[in-house]
Amino acid sequence: MSDDTFEPKIVGFMCNWCSYRAADLAGSARIKYPPNVRIIRLMCSGRIDPAFVLKALSLGADGVMLAGCHPGECHYVDQNYKAMRRYYMLKHTLKSLGIEPERVQLVWASAAEGQHLAEAIEKLVADVKKLGPLRWPSNWKDNEDRLEALESIVKEHEEALEVES
């Protein structure tokens, strides 16, 4: 599936205070990393709606990076923990959808960790290259399994909601 010319398209959601600044620092320090991640700035990793990730994948992204401040160092006290919880739930969902969870990676990077962020990007790009293109939108119609999985997840959610009410 993968070949040497495959350049994955990856969307990176970064919080304004730590990880976006880490990316700024990587730039100021002229640290080189693969140019595959297109960075979108949010105020906090807590703002990352799992729908953003699904949206990106459904539009043709091969991978997604989520980045925030280190646990305990969140600018908004502890909202990155909430991002982390969502991330683990999301990974579970992706698995059921037949998407390799390695395509979506969560990274903690403080504003002083340009090198660390660059390394994390390198790793994500390498991992996604190994997995090959996702082409979710074009594969979607043909992939009955994924559709089925999605339906079962929706059903599960509905059932869960019913129990609660």
Partner: peptide, 29 residues
Amino acid sequence: KGCGTCVAACPAGVISASHFNNQQVFAEI
């Protein structure tokens, strides 16, 4: 303080974050 965590959490999607609302982020993606 505008972190937007509640926006991402609202199951009904009725919380909106000014300057970082869903429409804006989706368009950016």
